[in-house]
């Protein structure tokens, strides 16, 4: 059973880690969470990103949410902001796409082209 004592232990461990941590690069993963996004299944997508970030202990990555991005038909939409790079927009994201986005793009810096809005718009019939 999870308890507040356990949280206290996490606090102690984390404080030590934070002291060792260098300047963080500040990647942001932003999931659209307006009515359109939620109805299209954004919550499990957001949750999957949190899971991946937790699993890999990526303490320099922030998972955040935003409102309606404006292209509701392509929800769930995820935007990735890396410092010094153009924003990348992934569309119609499902939880099973998340591990690949994190591994290839967030960790290794290679955009997953076939999930992006540009690819989607040029390859659909």
């Amino acid at each position: 059973m999870k308890s507040l004592q356990e949280l206290e232990a996490i606090r102690k461990r984390t404080l030590e880690k934070i002291n060792l941590r260098k300047e963080h690069n500040g990647t942001r993963i932003v999931v659209g969470m307006a009515t359109c996004g939620i109805a299209a299944g954004a919550r499990p997508v957001l949750s999957a990103f949190v899971d991946e970030v937790t699993k890999r202990s990526l303490s320099d990555v922030v998972v955040a949410q935003t409102g309606c991005i404006g292209i509701c038909r392509l929800e769930p939409i995820v935007e990735v902001y890396k410092p010094d790079q153009e924003k990348v927009t992934y569309v119609k994201v499902s939880p099973d796409m998340v591990a690949r986005i994190v591994a290839e793009h967030i960790v290794n810096g290679k955009v997953v082209d076939e999930y992006t809005i540009g690819y989607y718009e040029t390859h659909q019939n």
Binding site: L4, I10, I18, T54
Partner: peptide, 17 residues
């Protein structure tokens, strides 16, 4: 209150907890 200042709720271990 338990976490105090300095540890965000977005720390991976805290999120998991």
């Amino acid at each position: 209150i338990v976490l105090g200042d300095g540890i965000p709720l977005t720390d991976p271990d805290v999120m998991g907890w």
